[in-house]
Design a protein around this nucleic acid. Structure first.
Lengths: 223, 223
DNA sequence: AAGCGTCGTTCTGTCGACAGATTTGACGAA
DNA sequence: TTCGTCAAATCTGTCGACAGAACGACGCTT
């Protein structure tokens, strides 16, 4: 069964594949993406390729030159910092909104996530830690009760994802990060929106600082 | 000269026109928008119409049914409230970021805007007040130094715009709203990011409350 | 060797067409 | 009348084609 779910249109498939290539770093900033080339690559006509590019443009993954041509968007660390400022604020808002809404089951699930993250970090299991962190945030997104907020954050996370590919993904989480999650969780258990928001903003901002520092180090290494 | 600037593609023109129709309320929620129909309306092929719909979908103005068909997105007041929660937070962030960046000329321009708003309100000049408010916010957007934030806010404002068409646009600003602007301005003059942020969040939230109340009243009138 | 115009190539924007799927509406049965 | 059925009408997803614009390489001029 080569296609378990061909429920996706060709445009969807092209979109996802290009997006994955962008997130994995296979496509480098500045690289041109032409419709005929992509069409050939996916064995389709230009229509699906064109639609995929339109979407990627809307989401900020590619830029359109005045001529109408498309290239992979630049990866500017300063821009990443701006993205993170917004993201920190919105994640903080999500925490604040979720604080009074989280049910016991949610809080328990989040507690488990943090515990998982803790042991993963102690075992140098980076992907496990990332998965646990993902779960933590997913509960917040699901329960914060604000759809536009969730989709905005998803869009931001997508944009940020491209930068992650530049640095070894190891070390996204460490003991400090685990502690920060515990503090957020504590505030949520206490139903304290202000503290939950503040802790979340601090957490995301610190994550940003770490990522930015690593990106700047890498940039210094490869001049 | 019927076309002063045909620098826009047919897809662009269609997009703008449909968007305007959506913002003005000419297109009602639930109404179907088919590509052939739009193509006919704009004397083009389906391609530009299709592209316009794709963009409108991405920006949340229209929804895509499982069948792939498109209809004008619903206008749910609860959803508007969610949008405003996010917007208030982001406008607050913009104010916070701008606080240390605003130059004297910017602060002066904003002062003038508030003064203009004041006299407009006193003269029952609704559109003048709106224009002044626009200027005030524009300075903030221009000077906050965070591109993603600006574009996110623009997107949010677009979505919110459709709701405005439902109520008589009169009374968007009143003496209270002017006072709120003055307080924001005061905080900015004092270079107090926390206060600027808090005042801005309060201002936007109260604007939301007024709009929501008016929408609910209207909904009660026309059952 | 740098600058510049020219020509072929490539690309985008747009068009019309077709197949498959969905929706509509008429028509007949209960 | 209400419901189910079936055929006509419509729509979307996709394709291939064409014109005009942009790009790139080449050779010519200075």
């Amino acid at each position: 069964m080569p296609e378990p779910a061909s429920k996706l249109s060709l445009a969807d498939e092209a979109y996802r594949e290009i997006r994955d290539a962008l997130l994995s770093g296979a496509l480098e900033p500045g690289q041109r993406l032409s419709e005929p080339e992509l069409a050939l690559r996916f064995n389709t006509s230009r229509s699906p390729a064109r639609e995929a590019l339109l979407r990627l443009e809307h989401e900020g993954f590619v830029e359109r030159l005045p001529s109408g041509r498309v290239r992979v968007a630049a990866l500017d660390v300063g821009y990443l910092e701006q993205l993170y400022v917004v993201r920190a604020n919105l994640e903080g808002l999500a925490a604040r909104l979720a604080a009074p809404l989280l049910r016991t089951v949610d809080l328990d699930a989040m507690t488990r996530s943090v515990d998982d993250m803790d042991s993963a970090v102690k075992n140098d299991d980076a992907s496990g830690a990332i998965a646990a962190g993902q779960q933590f945030h997913d509960v917040l997104m699901r329960e914060c009760g604000n759809e536009p907020l969730v989709s905005l954050l998803a869009a931001l996370k997508g944009r940020i994802g491209r930068f992650r590919a530049l640095v070894a993904s190891l070390g996204d989480y460490d003991a400090d990060r685990v502690l920060e999650h515990r503090r957020i969780l504590e505030a949520l258990f206490a139903r304290d929106p202000d503290r939950a928001q503040a802790e979340m903003i601090g957490h995301v901002s610190r994550s940003a600082t770490v990522l930015v520092r690593r990106l700047r180090e890498r940039a210094a290494d490869t001049p």
